Simulated assay, not measured.
Amino acid sequence: MHRLFVALRPPPAIRALLGAVQGGVPHARWQDDEQMHLTLRYIGEIDRPMAEDVAVALGQVHAAAPSVALAGVGAFDKQGRVDALWAGVAPHDALAALHKKVDQALVRIGLAPERRAYLPHVTLARLPRSAGGDPAIEHWRARHAGLTSAPFTLDAMILYESRLGRDGAQYDAIARFALDAQ
């Protein structure tokens, strides 16, 4: 089985900027440079024939390369506890349209449609259950609320395989699909 997702990879300068805001939250598992991405669509575990179909379907998606900028930070919580810290990007329109195209392509080959609302972001850290209501989380959010960048272009979709290990997830790029220049 292959655990797959489709993502966009920010350019090196943006990843460096994101790396510079990491820290200051005890027990956070900060994403390293290789893990930084903006998920377009989580696929999940599928067998090899379906993975090959996914690659073919993604190759047929044509869209303009979105231009975005970093836009603040946030957190996801699960059952009342923060479990991830992220950096936002804006504007959302082109990313949401690309997400929809990818989702439609995957539905056409038999995958279930995405049911969750799409919120474009780059995950920066995962937090253990024990982090709970640590005030360091809110301090980090307040300190980096104004995170911004110059606009940057996301010029390719990447199909990743995620391998879970003791030290977190490792992401391997399986295929790259260029997006149209604007």
Score class of each variant (00 low, 15 high):
Ala63Arg: 11
Tyr118Ala: 04
Ala178Leu: 06
Arg29Asn: 14
His121Arg: 10
Ala55Phe: 00
Ile137Cys: 08
Arg116Asn: 12
Thr148Trp: 00
Gly59Pro: 14
Ala150Phe: 01
His92Arg: 15
Ala94Met: 02
Met157Asp: 00
Leu154Ser: 02
Arg163Pro: 11
Ala175Glu: 09
Glu161His: 02
Leu124Ala: 08
Ala175Met: 04
Gly132Pro: 14
Ala57Arg: 02
Phe177Trp: 01
Pro10Glu: 00
Met157Gln: 01
Leu111Glu: 12
Ala117Gly: 11
Phe76Ser: 04
Tyr42Gln: 07
Val68Ile: 11
Ala181Arg: 15
Gly165Gln: 08
Arg41Phe: 03
Ala69Tyr: 01
Val61Cys: 09
Arg116Thr: 07
Lys101Tyr: 01
Asp93Trp: 09
Met1Glu: 07
Arg29Thr: 14
Pro151Thr: 08
Met36Phe: 04
Arg129Val: 06
Ala13Leu: 10
Tyr42Ala: 08
Ala156Glu: 15
Leu159Lys: 02
Arg41Val: 03
Ala20Leu: 03
His144Leu: 05
Tyr160Glu: 12
Leu124Met: 14
Leu106Lys: 04
Ala173Phe: 01
Gly72Tyr: 05
Gln182Phe: 02
Ala173Cys: 07
His92Tyr: 09
Pro91Glu: 00
Pro113Cys: 09
Leu58Ser: 09
Ala57Cys: 01
Glu52Ile: 08
Arg81Ser: 11
Pro12His: 07
Val73Glu: 05
Tyr118Arg: 02
Ala55Gly: 14
Ala178Trp: 01
Ile109Pro: 10
Met157Ser: 00
Val21Phe: 03
Gly74Phe: 02
Ala87Trp: 08
Leu119Ala: 07
Ala28Arg: 09
Gly80Asn: 08
Lys100Ser: 12
Arg166Tyr: 05
Trp140Cys: 09
Ile137Val: 14
Ile43Lys: 03
Val68His: 02
His92Val: 06
Ala75Met: 02
Gln170Gly: 09
His99Met: 03
Pro12Ala: 10
Tyr42Trp: 13
Arg176Asp: 07
Ala69Trp: 04
Leu17Glu: 08
Val122Arg: 06
Gln79Ala: 14
Leu58His: 07
Thr123Trp: 04
Leu8Asp: 00
Glu114Lys: 04
Phe5Ile: 13
Gly44Leu: 12
Ala75Ser: 05
His37Tyr: 03
Arg108Gln: 11
Lys101Phe: 01
Thr123Phe: 08
Gly165Pro: 12
